[in-house]
Structures are given as C-alpha cells and as structure tokens.
Design a protein around this nucleic acid. Structure first.
Length: 625
RNA sequence: GCCCCGGUAGCCUAGCCUGGUGGGGCGGCGGACUUGUAAUCCGCAGGCCGCGGGUUCAAAUCCCGCCCGGGGCUCCA
C-alpha cells in the first residue's frame, strides 16, 4: 500500500463520473464532502497487499495515527487515490481495506470521512506546507517498510546498510556486539552513539557554561541561531587555532587559496552536487538570482582545479582554505554550543591524486598529520576515538592498509562497512571526541573521493599526455575550529569532574601571566615585570585594581591563568618574582628570565598573538556581567 | 517541524504550586581599609517580572496566544 499524507487547511471533493464499471454505491450526500484542519490520506492498495489485508489495515492505521498525533489534528480524510502505484490491487479488496481503515480510525475516536471509491472526483486541497505537512509511506505485508517523502539521495541512504565492526591493531575484525569493550569504555560509548544515536539527556553541555563564564564565546540573539559572538579572549583562542592549523597545512605542502562564500544555484556542476543533499543551505537573494552560502570549501577549490592545467608531475597537488565561515542550516534543535553551529570555521584541504595508490599514500600521511595537529591542541589518541568507513570491495583489496591505520593509532577502532558505495568516497576516517554527555563529535577527517573529479571536470595529463580524471582527497586535519574549542573545553570539564584544575594549552591561554602587586606601592615594579614578559612575547597583564590580594588571586585562578606572579617589598628589593604555578599549585621565588625561558620552551613551535585585552585589569569592561 | 524545560536589574538567582505593592548574591558607582597567595567592610543606584490578551477588587504568580533561548526527537555534506 502506498499512502500520501497531506496536512491541510481543508480538503473538499465532488463526485463527477464513474471510473470503474462497478463503483461503490453511494448516497446523495456522499457526492460532496469537506473537512477542515484535516490530515488528507491518499491511498493506493497494491497487489501485494492482497496477501494479508488485515495486516495492511493494522499497519496503515498505525502510520496514520502516528502522523495525526504529530500534526495535532483529529480530522482524517481517507481518499482512494490510484495514482500512487503502478501495481494496483483488485478494486474489491482495495475497497474492503479502505473501509476497514475508515472504521478502525472511527472506532479510535477520530473524525473520519472517506471519499467514494471508483469515481472521478474533483477535489480541492490546501496543504499547510510545514515540514511534516507532506509525507508518504509504503506499507507491505510481512515487514513494514517506511518511506518518507525525501530527496532521492536520502532514500538511497536509508536503504544503505551498514555493517559495524571493531578492528584491533592485531588485525582482528570483530562484530561490534561480540567485541569485549572492557578497557575501552570510551570506544564503547562512541560505537553506541554511532550505531544507536539515541540519547536521553537534558543537560547543558559543560563547555557552554565554561565558554560563557570565561567570556570566550556567547550567543548572539541579533543573528540566526548557531551564529556566535566571540569576545576578545575567545577570539584570541580561535584565531591562534586558525593560524596553527593553517601553518601546519602550509608546512605539509598545501597552497592556501581563498574562494567566495556564496555560489550560484544554477551552476551546473554545483547543482548536481547540491542535489545529493537535503536543503540545508542558507539562501541569499540578489536581484533575481539565488545563491547558497557554501557549506564547505569544496566548491571554490574544485572550480579552481577545473580551470587549472595540471600535469602528473604536479601530483599530489594540495590546496587549502580556512573557511570563515562555512554555513549549514542545521535544524534548530540540533544546534549545541560550540559543538554544532550554523556558521563555523573549517580548515579544508583538497588533494589531487594520480591514482588509488597515490591517494592511499596521501591518506595515510594525512591520517598521521591529523594526529599531530590534534596533539598540538592538547588532544592525544586517549582523548578521541577513530572510525574508519569503507566499502566491502575496498576492504577486501586493502586489508593490510586498514590494519596499519589501527597500528598507527595503537588501539581498536570502529569500522563501518558498506556493501556498495553510496557516498562520493570509498574510504574515510574520522577522529571523534566523546564528551561529558556521551555524545560524539567528529574532529579530523580524510576521505578519498572517486566522484567529484568527473562531476566538476577536474583532469590532469598523464605521462602519455592523456587527459585523466584524478582522485580527490578531502581533509580537515582538525575539524571545525569551533569544534576544537569545544573538545578542549569538554576535556577540561572531564578533568574538573575528577577534581583536577582545568588548564588551556599554554600557547592558547589568553593571558599567560598575571602580575599582582601586593599594594599600590609596588605597581611600578609589577608593570616592569609585565613589560619584560611582554617584550619576550608572552601575554602578561597587571591586576592594578584596588582589591584584596586574595581576591585577585582567586579571580586569576578562575580565569585559568597558568602563572600568577605576586610582587611586593621582598621581590622589589631582591629583583625577583614569586610565581604561583597552576600546573602544580606551588609557589616559586625565581628570576623573571627563568620564567620567560620556561614559558618560551612550552610554547615553542606554536603561533603567538599579543594580549587580547588592555594591560591593566582595571581598564577592562565586563562583557557579560 | 514536533516534544520537554526556561525567560525576574549587565550576570546568577529566590518568589510562581497556594494571586495581596519583587528578595538575595555577583558586577557597577561612592566611601573606609593599604592589603603577602582562592571572595575586606559600609553605603548608593539599577526592574514595563520576555511580549500581547484574558480571568480577578487585585496577576511575576492562574488561563490563552505569540516571541526568544536551551535540551530532546528526526536528520547531518
């Protein structure tokens, strides 16, 4: 049975002519009908339904009831509609089934009308047009199969079956439910999240509280949800992360480019690509034209590559852009703090590879690169879980290659295998962070794309001068920058739960050293010390407020400042400083030069930006009370 | 879109169930204190209790509608 459900302001019909030789007998008042605020249920009974009409009735009623409760109406219009199927059942069985559905629904207390069977009817209908207003269902005997009115791509995705395994570094491939997760609790959480995806939590994620309290990031009611506001400290952290990932990729050999953030809906190559995905774009109207805001850097880079003349000698060719921003209009209820946004910053590198062999070599290198990039922001393999996804064919031909990936990470990984390729890629990995609410979020990812070079017309010339389609690798070695911030903060929240002091990686700490004079009298010495630190490119400030020392210490601690210097009579006389170190909670009396050396050593190799706020704490506004 | 929770001063929060002129803390401002490693004391200012409607002699409180935020569902390039 096929059902089309339309939530409507009203549905009215009028009987015209007979459509069958022997239509249903009807009375005069059945020739016209109307219901307002109604769920219109158009139905076609199919041949297979004859195998088990009772079951079909039961399932159909259940489906209808479910939709009725979702759209919150009590009015149902059962409407025989042959055009939904090309394999109709016989009219008498069909009529019987429809009548039974009608009666069942009436018995359950709904206000039901049914249009007569076997006539040509004129009808008017006013669809409400909200997302649930138009649904379709297919019901078959035996096993109820659901089908929603969704883009072709999503339908295919639904049919796509995933086989889940755990692969150990020893090369053992174990079905997920047979794997012994003891010692791998985090992997278990991740696997569970990936496979079941159902969660019952009603908490604010800990990183949200931190980002607000620390005045890093805030919601912006003046924008669309999922578009955030960054205060100076948050902007500094984000900016340093952006620079860090960019530098890493350039060092790796990528060419940095910049491409537009909006694209023409009508562009042929883009159109095809876009059609694979449900409508999640921001749309910008300009005159008569419609543009969508990019949801990744693929478009811009592919369009550059399409026009470039590329020789096999240039391969692998790596191109990179940091998208500030990529836009995805995620559903309202899906947005969450820094974890999932509608506007986010995505480092996105695309590599043109000659053939599968070169693509795989690059894949492995970028896998290692991703590990290194995450390590730099304080995330080690202990902090994330690996998922590797591929087609069955790829696995059969490249087992050793995959096993080697698990050896590199040194722990079991989650495997998702597909019988056939549906996505544009044949192989993909992600590093996923599992947070305090047991939710997983993908950070690093690399994919081998076998489809888009054709779609975009990207070619290279091989040794014989032949024009060939290359493979493309998509790589984000860190994942979205906002999500890296999320992972850093969630990791600290985990530590706090265990009673440990939270800390930023030293190079990311917005203020690295706070200097506190014991009283006004020593402000000059405090400024002198801060000046020395700043001269060495260390972000230092001075708490010159007229407050108690204890209070200033407390506030510096609450800001997670790694080094707190207190100076007074002793220090000034001896030309030293007293440092309170966050990492061990101890105090040391040392020379400022030694502190500089220590901090420089800890931040070596990472980007630097100057202090994001005025040097004197007394000169700073409160951004959020 | 649907479901749940919330919206009280710049921030956090009590009061709402059981209607009777909104209370505290932080922050801000003024003053005293001149500080040695996680919150000094005193005072002052600051509110269309999200918006609109209804019930009532009387609404932050009860009812209806809307807006905004958070979480969940579905989904996720």
């Amino acid at each position: 049975m096929r059902i089309l459900l339309i939530h409507s302001d009203y549905l009215e019909y009028e009987v015209k002519d007979k459509a069958l030789k022997k239509p249903e007998e009807i009375s005069e008042n059945q020739k016209k009908g109307r219901l307002d605020e109604v769920l219109a249920v158009f139905m076609s009974v199919e041949k297979v339904d004859e195998q088990n009409p009772e079951e079909i009735v039961e399932k159909a009623v259940k489906e209808i009831e479910e939709v009725v409760s979702q759209v919150k109406t009590n009015n149902i219009f059962v409407y025989p509609f042959a055009h939904l199927s090309s394999e109709l059942g016989s009219p008498d069985v069909a009529l019987r089934i429809l009548k039974e559905i009608e009666n069942e629904l009436k018995n359950k207390g709904y206000n039901v009308r049914r249009a007569p069977f076997g006539y040509y009817k004129a009808f008017k209908l006013s669809c409400k047009g909200h997302p649930l207003a138009e649904l379709s269902r297919t019901i078959v005997p035996g096993e109820a199969k659901k089908e929603e009115e969704v883009p072709e791509a999503l339908k295919k995705e639904e049919e796509l079956v995933s086989y889940w395994y755990i692969l150990t570094p020893e090369g053992e491939l174990v079905e997920v439910d047979k794997f012994d997760f003891s010692g791998y609790e985090n992997l278990k959480k991740f696997a569970n999240y990936e496979i079941n995806k159902s969660r019952v939590v009603t908490e604010e994620p800990p990183h949200v509280k931190i980002m607000l309290e620390q005045e890093l990031v805030d919601y912006e009611e003046g924008s669309d949800p999922g578009n955030l506001r960054y205060y100076p400290k948050g902007r500094l952290i984000k900016s340093l992360l952006e620079n860090y990932v960019t530098e890493k990729l350039i060092e790796y050999g990528a060419m940095e480019v910049e491409t537009p953030i909006m694209y023409d809906f009508e562009h042929p190559a883009l159109e095809k690509y876009l059609n694979r995905f449900p409508a999640r774009q921001y749309v910008v109207k300009s005159g008569d034209k419609r543009f969508f805001l990019r949801f990744a850097a693929c478009f811009g880079q592919f369009l550059i590559k399409k026009d470039a003349t590329i020789s096999y000698r240039h391969l692998p060719l790596r191109m990179y852009e940091l998208t500030r921003y990529s836009f995805r209009r995620e559903k309202r209820g899906e947005l969450s703090g820094l974890r999932r946004l509608r506007a986010f910053t995505m480092p996105d590198m695309h590599t043109v590879a000659k053939n599968l062999q070169q693509a795989m070599e690059e894949f492995k290198k970028q896998y290692k690169l991703s590990m290194e990039v995450l390590k730099g922001v304080g995330l080690t393999p202990k902090d994330y879980e690996v998922a590797i996804r591929f087609t069955e064919d790829f696995w059969n031909e490249n087992k050793d290659f995959i096993v080697d990936l698990t050896r590199i990470i040194g722990k079991p990984v989650l495997i998702e295998m597909w019988k056939q390729r549906f996505f544009y890629f044949i192989l993909k990995f992600e590093f996923n962070f599992v947070d305090n609410l047991d939710k997983a979020a993908a950070l690093s990812t690399v994919q081998i794309d076998v489809e888009n070079s054709q779609r975009f017309g990207i070619t290279y010339y091989d040794e014989e001068g032949q024009e060939k389609y290359p493979l493309l690798l998509h790589c984000s070695p860190s994942g979205a920058i906002e999500r890296v911030m999320y992972a850093i903060l969630e990791k600290q929240a985990k530590l706090m739960k265990k009673g440990k002091k939270p800390m930023y990686p030293p190079w990311l700490s917005p203020i690295q050293v706070r200097v506190i004079p014991v009283s006004e009298k020593y402000l000059d010495y405090a400024l002198y010390i801060a000046g020395k630190l700043e001269g060495a490119k260390i972000r230092a400030d001075v708490d010159d407020r007229n407050e108690r020392l204890n209070k200033k210490i407390r506030e510096a601690e609450k800001e997670w400042i790694p080094y707190i210097i207190v100076v007074g009579e002793n220090e000034k006389r001896m030309g030293v400083i007293t440092v309170r170190k966050r990492e061990d909670n101890k105090q040391y009396e040392i020379h400022v030069e030694d502190l500089i050396k220590e901090i420089k050593q800890k931040t070596e190799g990472f980007p630097y930006k100057p202090r994001p706020l005025p040097p004197l704490v007394s000169m700073r506004p409160k951004f959020r009370g």
